[in-house]
Structures are given as C-alpha cells and as structure tokens.
Nucleic acid binder design. Structure first.
Length: 572
DNA sequence: GCCGTTTTCGGCCCGACTGTTTTCAGTCG
C-alpha cells in the first residue's frame, strides 16, 4: 500500500471519528497523521520495516502500528471496525457544502437518511424542518450543494486521467497489433478537468486490439465491444473510449477525436469552402482522399499552419492559423526556470525549507520563491512577524551556501475583507515578492470582492494575487470576482497574475491567460506546493498556459533571474 | 492520538460566518 492510499485511510478514519463525536484532538491527530504520511520523503515501507515511523512528527506509536498493519496485510482492523458504524452513503453526505459530521449524524439518526439521494428527497419534502437546528435555508443550501456535487460527479482531475491514460497506453503499446497510438479528446487538449479518456490506435487488426483493450487488468466493466470501437470503465471509475482505425485514416481520426466539436465543425466548413470534405476517415476531393501522413499534413493541405491540440477550442485559432498569426512557440515545461508560491513546514507545508530547495534544484530550477501563510491564516499555522524573520535568517544562511540558485523571500499574505493586508507595509517591503490571497469571507458581492482584491493588488509591495477565483474543482465554486478588472489593474500597476498550477485550482484559467497576454500582463505559473512533489504540478500549469496561447515571454517564471529581480523592483 | 529542555499530564490554532436561535452550535478555512 502506498503513501497516498494510507493517507486516504487515515483521513477517512478521522471523518468516521468525527461522526462518532470523538475527542476533537484525537481526530486532528489522525488528520495530522494523514498529512504527515503524504509528506514523507523517504520510502514508507522501508521506514515501517526499520521501525522508524515514529520519528516522523505527527506519527506516534498507535499510528505507526496502524500504518505497518496497512503495509503488511493491506487493511486495518480499527479502520474496518469504524467503517461498520456508518453506511457508505452517510460519508458521501459530508462532501456536501455546509454539511459537517454533526448535522450528518443527526440526519442519519433522526431521519434515517442513508444516502445523498434520500437526503435530496427529504429536503424536497421539507422533512428536515422537523429536526431541531434545521430550517428552510439549510434545506435550500443542501439542495444547492447536491446539485453542485452532481454536476462534477463524473469528472476527474487532469493528472489522474493523464496517469491512467499513460498506463493504459503502455499496456496497449506492447501489443504487436498496435501501430500508432495516441491520447485524443479533452485530455489531449488539456482541458482543466476530464470526463473520459479517449484513445486512438491505428492497426491492421482491430479485432485483436479491441480484445487486448478489454482484457486490461484495471478494467472494471466493459460498456461496449465492437469491431473498431470499445468503451470500458476502469476501477478508478474513469471511462475510456477506444477507436481503432487504419494507419491511413489515423491522422484524420486523431484530429477528429481530439476535437473540440466546435473546432471540428469550423474546420470542416473551411474544407468545404475549398471544395473538400473532411471527416474522421479522410480529407476528400470528390471520392478521392488526399494523402496526409500526419496532422501537420492535414492542416497544411487546408492551407493552415499547425494548430497545437491545446488551442483547438474554436476561439480564434483557425482564423489565426489562416493568417499565420498563431503563437510561434508555446511555452513548454523545460522553459520554466523557477516558481513562486511554495509552502514549507513553517506554515502548512509538509516539507522543510531545505527539502523544497533541493527539490527545485533537482528539477533544474534557478530559483524558488517561499511564500508561507500570514498570521490571519490560523488554520494553516500562519506566520507572525517574528517567525517570518526567523525564516529569513534561515533563507540567508542557505542562500550563502547555494551556487547558481536563489531562494526568494516571499509570503502568501491574506487579503482581509476590506482589501487591506494581514502584514504591515513595513514588513511587506522587506520581502522579495508578495502574493496576496483571499482565504476568508468568500460570501461577498462581485463588486465588493473585486474592490477588495484590486485594493490589495494596488498595494505597492504586492506582486500578484494568488488563486484569483478561489474555486476548487469538485469541491467549491469560486467567490465572484471580475477577472477582467483584476487583469486591467495588474496592467496599470505593473503586476503579475498567478496561474495556480494545482490541479484542483488551475486558477486563473486559460481563458484569462489569453486576456492577460493581450494586455501584456506576465503570468506566473505557480505550483502552490505543500510538499516537494507539489512543485511538479507546474507541468499541468504549463498545459493550461499553452491552452491560453502563452509563449515563454508571457510567463514570468521562464525569465532569466536577473530579469525577474528587475521586475520585482519595477512596480514599487 | 501526539507531544515535551518550564511539562510524562494536560495542552493541542481559532476567528468569522451562517442559520438557527434569543445565546449558540455547526461549519469552514
């Protein structure tokens, strides 16, 4: 059992303990334990063997035994026991906004509600009004929460889908019948969340390929198994569609199945204008298909420059391709030289300052910005000025030892409801950079929230706004804010805008990247890392940036360090 | 349940908001 799975079990146990009304500090110990496990840098199985688990802060004797049990026999008796106390659907109710363990417990015990569906029905019939502590508003909010849950039900975070797709492709590539293979669909276009995985294979023996496809060990259910088309659901609950075509058809099919639908429709009309017909099997002049070996050939034949998959959303890319006005070279991961917005154990990160630095160095970076939370972020162990200064000292010492690498002193300072910041200007002035973020009082009108955030951005020491909308995929909607106004203010005050690369966030999204680019506002692709691996999320942020038409020059974190330092001084 | 150079017992991060209530419990971050 790996770190992630162990952490998930500890997390679930914490939830179950909450439902059982256990000692809150015991619950927190499980939550801390889960986070500690996730943050472990070494091999957890080895640590368990060597009985060194208790050396990790947050893991004591009991949790160490439990983790060892999980590693050795794959389950824990304590966990199984706890799980028996509540039906599974009751746990699901907890993912509804505004419903916590206390209320869920009451609903389960008083109204005998066991699933989200039963809860929804009960709300509609106003059965909750009978229960003390529940009112009309609560019912409405629960229904809203259920609606939101349903909307995001069948979607998956980008990296989860990508990992599944790569593993499946590795497996399929081994078949001698597979000629060319590719990811298609929204995953190839790097949409922010993924509903299903589309795979395309060229082969002269489609039957065999399909047979191999449905025999994949991680398949949970086969939905369709035809001559050239198959669909399955994986154990991870992701749907995967496969199409098998001939190698001649492959480039056309790849384009077709990559989409988007709107892009395809538009491109077909371009073909039609030229007296051609385009579909997934070819580009036809009369009955004769024009030869194309690759997608590049296809675009060329239509008189267009090559359109990268990320751009195919029919938001002007076809027009630009006709006029040869597409970005010359979209940003790539290898262009990235460093990252702002990283947390350490000083606040709510799992890795120490030094571990984060080493990770950044191992990724070939030239700098890393450290931005732990400010004091208002109690829940995240936010820093008071004295601890900020302690961290600065540690950074100074490390910097003096480092060659060709620099740690930048930063903070993720809370934006208070009135738009002022959680640190005094006098302190802010001493940071190399300042990220200002909203972490509280989300419930404001768009006008007030926009005022609040732009006021913060206008502060002469603030470099950028962190995760500007605050949304979390599948968990909560963002607070209302006018992003165009925000970008305009960034433009006027010479600031940057964050593209938070955490796959739960992708905030701002690619649409706003495009707008920022049009205003020459540099985008910072930031990992918002809370552990060393978190820094790797930058690669997904790069995908979103590409989708937003960004080239290296548009991305602050690709600039040479001396230019970045110049930028950080320019707006003060 | 975890932790510890004031402590092996007794703390453990807490303020704001919401919706329900008339003084507060539950939820969230």
């Amino acid at each position: 059992m790996n770190k992630k799975e162990i952490a998930e079990i500890l997390e679930e146990m914490a939830v179950l303990l909450e439902l059982k009304d256990e000692n809150p500090f015991k619950i927190r110990a499980f939550q801390n334990g889960a986070r500690a496990v996730e943050g472990i840098e070494e091999d957890i199985e080895k640590l368990s063997e060597q009985k060194k688990l208790t050396e990790i802060p947050g893991i004591g004797n009991h949790l160490a035994t439990l983790i060892t049990e999980l590693i050795q026999i794959g389950f824990s008796k304590d966990h199984q026991q706890l799980k028996k106390s509540f039906p599974e659907g009751v746990l699901k109710m907890l993912s509804i906004q505004g419903l916590g363990p206390k209320k869920v417990k009451v609903l389960y015990q008083k109204l005998k509600l066991k699933t989200v569906e039963e809860l929804e029905e009960a709300c509609k019939q106003h059965k909750l009004l009978k229960v003390e502590g529940f009112g009309e508003k609560t019912e409405i909010n629960i229904l809203k929460g259920i609606e939101y849950l349903k909307k995001s039900k069948d979607s998956h975070l980008f990296p989860e889908a990508l990992d599944e797709a790569h593993a499946y492709m590795d497996y399929l590539s081994k078949s001698s019948h597979t000629q060319r293979i590719s990811i298609a669909g929204s995953l190839r276009r790097h949409k922010e969340t993924i509903r299903d995985i589309d795979l395309l294979i060229s082969s002269s023996n489609p039957k065999e390929v399909i047979k191999t496809f449905v025999s994949y060990p991680l398949v949970n259910r086969i939905l369709a198994e035809g001559e050239t088309k198959s669909a399955v659901i994986l154990k991870s609950r992701i749907n995967v569609d496969l199409r098998v075509v001939t190698d001649t058809e492959y480039p056309f099919a790849l384009h077709y199945f990559t989409g988007s639908k709107e892009h395809n429709t538009h491109l077909r009309s371009i073909a039609k204008d030229k007296g051609l017909k385009l579909n997934e099997y070819g580009l036809f002049k009369g009955k004769k298909s024009l030869p194309c070996k690759t997608e590049e050939d296809l675009f060329k034949t239509l008189g267009l420059s090559y359109i990268e998959p990320e751009l195919r959303e029919d938001v002007g890319e076809i027009d630009a391709a006709q006029k040869n006005k597409l970005p010359k070279k979209l940003v790539e991961f290898k262009d990235i030289r460093g990252a702002f917005h990283n947390h350490t154990t000083y606040s709510d990160g799992a890795a120490t300052l030094e571990q984060m630095v080493h990770k950044a160095q191992s990724m070939g970076f030239e700098f890393i910005g450290i931005s732990d939370h400010s004091k208002a972020a109690y829940y995240a162990n936010g820093l008071k000025p004295d601890r900020v200064k302690k961290q600065w000292k540690e950074i100074d010492v490390l910097n003096s030892k480092l060659k060709n690498f620099k740690i930048l002193k930063g903070t993720e300072v809370d934006i208070l409801p009135d738009g002022t910041l959680d640190f005094e200007d006098e302190l802010l002035a001493q940071f190399d950079f300042v990220i200002a973020s909203v972490h509280s009082k989300f419930n404001m009108t768009e006008k007030d929230m926009t005022k609040r955030i732009t006021t913060a951005l206008k502060n002469k020491y603030v470099t950028m706004v962190g995760h500007p909308t605050g949304h979390l995929f599948f968990m909560r909607e963002g607070y209302p804010v006018n992003l165009h106004t925000l970008v305009d203010v960034a433009k006027d005050y010479g600031k940057s805008v964050e593209l938070n690369a955490n796959p739960h966030r992708f905030d701002v999204d690619w649409r706003m990247c495009k707008y920022a680019k049009s205003k020459s506002v540099p985008i910072s692709i930031n990992p918002d890392a809370h552990k060393t691996e978190g820094i790797e999320d930058i690669q997904y942020g790069v995908g979103i940036a590409r989708k937003g038409w960004l080239e290296p020059k548009d991305v602050l974190t690709t600039w040479p360090l001396k230019d970045i330092m110049k930028f950080l001084k320019s707006y003060r």
